[in-house]
Design a protein around this nucleic acid. Sequence first.
DNA 1: CATATTTAGTGGCATATGCCAGTAAATTCT
DNA 2: AGAATTTACTGGCATATGCCACTAAATATG
Lengths: 155, 155
Amino acid sequence: MTKDDKTSIWAYCNSSAMRRAARQLGQLYDDAMGDTGLKGTQFSLLSQIRFSVEPTLKNLAELMVMDLSALGHTLKPLQRDGWIEIVPDENDRRVKRVRLTDKGFVKQAELTARWQVAQARFDKAFGKEKAAELRRTLALISSPEFARVFRDDAD
Amino acid sequence: MTKDDKTSIWAYCNSSAMRRAARQLGQLYDDAMGDTGLKGTQFSLLSQIRFSVEPTLKNLAELMVMDLSALGHTLKPLQRDGWIEIVPDENDRRVKRVRLTDKGFVKQAELTARWQVAQARFDKAFGKEKAAELRRTLALISSPEFARVFRDDAD
DNA sequence: CATATTTAGTGGCATATGCCAGTAAATTCT
DNA sequence: AGAATTTACTGGCATATGCCACTAAATATG
């Protein structure tokens, strides 16, 4: 164990430990975004939108493991600044789809270049293989299956 | 790899993956807090305060790997509702120290009982040993040493 | 000692994220 | 078909978190 001792929740609580690590990485990756005007969270969003096929807000919220309304709020600034656009679905009038604007594509590429620097630093500091494994672990924890097992504790 | 494929940033970005997992766990642990009126983040705060010796805001911010002003904001509701109190340091008039109120102690204990349920579920779903190792990994990533190595990439 | 610098917090502003209530459109049920 | 229910989203409110500018107090400097 590191210098964290029994007087720290981090040594015990999985959730608190995860949030704290998320804050640290958020900080580090945000720094890497530099003067692009966007943050790591926004880079994630733009990237997920880019690599999805015009996802609906619902789709995107599920992929992000984010509350639908929270997603809506988070997209506002990106929409306002012209990086994305939200268009109604042709078949189902309840549904709205998100996509990058041309400008958004360019911006996503620019951010990706910045991101790679941070990513490389992480790999170097933490270990490339360990990093890949960590991501697999995090993906598992983020999965709906995991949430289901966690909740259906009834045995 | 799980069902996440190359079209998901989660498969690549350590920071995005961490945040996403943090959202999932936040959700799961918050649910466990039930009708206590407080959330997992607030439980973390109360716990860290409880197990620290009247930390200064600065101390606490460092332990939480949180921005000092962010911490200040986050403490507001807890102070307003009487779970904690913030008192000026006797020697250094710039410094303020945080501590639980009597009411706060009781509340922290109540929340701990709820937390244990979530924690047990996590251990069961993820594996007790794996969970302990994950927390060590997260603690490492949260450490100032890690941030330093990450930033001082200059070689 | 007087001034420059550093340190600890505060307040305002902006994004991140979640809950709840409400609305409209689609689906199910009788 | 018409009513009940479900689904997808929106808007308001509250906490979470960070940046920047500003203030007060302590410390270092000449």
